Computed example of a mutant assay.
Amino acid sequence: MSLPAYPQPRHIAGAAGPPGPDYDADVIILALDRAEDTVAAIASARAQVGIDRHVWVADQGSRPENLALLAAAVEGAGDATLVQLDRNWGVAGGRNRATALGMGRCIFALDNDAEFAGPDTLAQAVRALEAEPDLAAIACRILIFSSGADDLSSWGYPPGLLPRSAECFDAVTFVGAGHAIRRSDFEAAGGYDDALFFCWEEFDFALRAINMGRRIRYRGDIAVRHKVSGERRFAWNGTRWYHFVRNRIYIGLKYGAGLPSLLPRFFAYQVKGAINGVLSQGLRAGPAALQLARAFRPTPEEAPLYRLSQAARNYLAKNDTAHRGGLPRRVRAELLAALPKAAAR
Rank of each mutant, 00 (worst) to 15 (best):
R307L: 03
A206N: 03
Y23Q: 07
V175F: 10
V27W: 12
G118M: 01
T38Y: 05
L253H: 10
G90P: 04
A71N: 04
S229E: 10
L110W: 03
A342S: 07
Y157S: 01
G118N: 02
V83H: 14
T121N: 06
P340F: 02
A180M: 04
A257M: 09
V91L: 15
A344R: 15
F108H: 14
W241R: 12
R63F: 03
F174P: 13
L82K: 05
V55T: 10
V224F: 01
A257C: 09
H179S: 09
N319H: 14
F205L: 08
R265W: 15
R87A: 14
L262P: 05
S146K: 11
F174H: 12
L30I: 07
L161D: 00
V224K: 04
V126Q: 06
R97K: 10
G94I: 08
E115G: 15
L305T: 13
Q8N: 07
A288S: 06
P260R: 07
G78M: 13
A80L: 02
A25V: 14
P19Q: 12
A209N: 11
D59S: 03
N211P: 07
V126L: 04
Y6H: 06
F169K: 12
G326K: 10
H323E: 06
G20N: 05
Y315E: 00
F296C: 13
A92I: 07
S2W: 06
F116W: 13
W89C: 09
E75H: 08
A317M: 11
G238H: 13
P287V: 01
P119C: 03
P298S: 11
R10H: 14
V228Y: 11
L135Q: 02
Y23H: 07
R313E: 07
G20F: 01
D150C: 02
E115V: 15
G93Y: 00
D170P: 14
F197A: 11
R97S: 04
L67D: 06
F145K: 12
R141Y: 00
A166L: 11
F186Y: 12
L259T: 13
R97W: 04
Q291G: 14
S280L: 11
A235L: 15
D33Y: 07
I29E: 03
A295W: 05
P18C: 06
R246C: 00
R345P: 13
G256F: 02
C106V: 04
P18T: 09
Y315V: 01
W236S: 10
G156F: 13
G256C: 02
A41G: 02
I42F: 01
T121I: 05
L30H: 09
R63A: 06
T81Y: 01
A71H: 05
I51S: 06
A13E: 03
